[in-house]
Write a protein that binds this DNA or RNA. Structure first.
Lengths: 252, 252
DNA sequence: TTTAGTAATAAAAACGATATTATTATTGTT
DNA sequence: AACAATAATAATATCGTTTTTATTACTAAA
């Protein structure tokens, strides 16, 4: 009998992923399904691209990845094709797959686009957000603040947790915006900008300005002061570009 | 010797596509490459979804499509996966592929998103556009006007040409906006909105308001009157929703 | 020494077949 | 008759291999 996928992963690869593993949760309910090999590979490769394990512009060598993941060509190709939707992978006929390159000009473009969509969503949220939205925002801000504190105690361990809280906070700001299309675009942009952020910060303690900026955005939003909240958010997003430009980490 | 893809298509399927066929152009230059089977299948399925040949929400039955296109499973799956990037196809683990459903609420969301991105790009174009941008816009408007006239003479034949000119005109309006990210999002939105447009118009002569609206947008843009151009464009995009809602063609 | 052409190699794209999962039909039980 | 459990069927996901294309290495002519 031939070996199949289900039996082969596990110990070898599974724990490397940044995604939740969806293993049983105390037998409470079985709503979660086992991911397909494609879904699993997609998730792992995605986080490796974001973390820079597969560097920008580098070739995604099919043979190598195939044996590394222990999967077949078509499965791998489909996982990589899905990453095209996130703009993390590009392809050209008969030339295979590459990690989407990074550049200063792309970062600037990306940042402008993010500012446009995030501020617009925030303004809408302030206008439309109900109590539940507000409650969630309070929760997310509080969690982020706590993650921030822990980061100062032990940067190495707490960094990934902070990243998650940061993402949740920014999602919470926009959450009352009703557009599913724009939410999807924001998600794509956020994911891509995460690649750039990792480039600069590299898992250290987050500079103190960041917390101040978050606090300013949070307070203005709670006070329903749209102009102030929007400009604070825009400044916050824009500042990250300057950090990276200052460090001269990128071509272009 | 086994039959392969290259030999099998051609007469049977190739002419059905809406994409340029990239066959030799008089031997002048050979910059154009033959598309891969995946690229070809992707293009054909995409246009069939937009045209409604594969209806919204319907299942994309792999076996049927495989034999219809004469390609293998993995090739087909990859083509369909690429369509996920365009949000024209959705998938859920172990449940196969479906055409993305359509609904009135989605149309409204889509329309709001389009208005945001298209008007923002137009405003930027008016601010930044150079002579070349202006020239191209004049050309595109003229071609659209000509297509419009021909449409009144022979709707059946001229409709597809009009669609192309319409798309080009709208692209030309936004063309001086520098953001590649937002351009990509606009393209995705335009494509999806095309599905809805086909639903209403159905290849007849385009209502006379449409030409008036185009002319108003064009004139205001050429006069660099941002406010007027933007509001005319917004009204133009929004009107299509009302047409469809009036016809009650959709669920939700 | 470069350049052009050709052979050898490596890699990607595509195929056909198998294993796995979901769905439908069937049967037996209360 | 309705329900649950199971068998049969259909469809999807995955595999291993072959064909096609691109890239590199090599050779010979200018």
């Amino acid at each position: 009998m031939r070996q199949r996928w289900s039996g082969r992963f596990g110990a070898k690869e599974r724990w490397l992923t940044a995604e939740p593993l969806r293993t049983g949760l105390g037998g409470a309910r079985f709503t979660e399904k086992k991911p397909t090999a494609i879904e699993f590979t997609y998730a792992v490769v995605r986080s490796r691209i974001i973390e820079g394990v597969y560097p920008p512009g580098s070739k995604l060598h099919l043979e190598t990845l195939k044996s590394s993941f222990g999967i077949s060509g078509s499965t791998l190709r489909e996982a990589l094709t899905r990453l095209m939707a996130d703009r993390l992978v590009i392809t050209e006929g008969q030339k295979g797959f590459r990690v989407t390159p990074m550049s200063l000009s792309d970062l600037e473009d990306l940042t402008d686009a993010r500012i446009k969509l995030e501020t617009s969503a925030l303004a809408e949220s302030i206008k439309l957000g109900d109590d539940a939205w507000e409650d969630n925002l309070v929760t997310c801000f509080h969690r982020l603040a706590r993650a921030q504190e822990r980061l100062e105690v032990d940067p190495a361990i707490a960094f990934d947790a902070w990243e998650v809280r940061n993402k949740e906070f920014h999602e919470a700001l926009a959450a009352a915006s009703p557009s599913a299309w724009l939410a999807r675009f924001r998600q794509v942009l956020f994911q891509s900008s995460e690649r750039y952020r990792r480039l600069s910060g590299t898992r250290g303690p987050v500079p103190f300005e960041v917390h101040n900026e978050h606090e300013e955005i949070f307070k203005a939003t709670m006070a329903r002061d749209t102009d102030k909240a929007v400009s604070a958010l825009a400044a916050h997003i824009r500042r990250s570009v300057n950090v990276i430009r200052a460090k001269a980490l990128l071509p272009d």
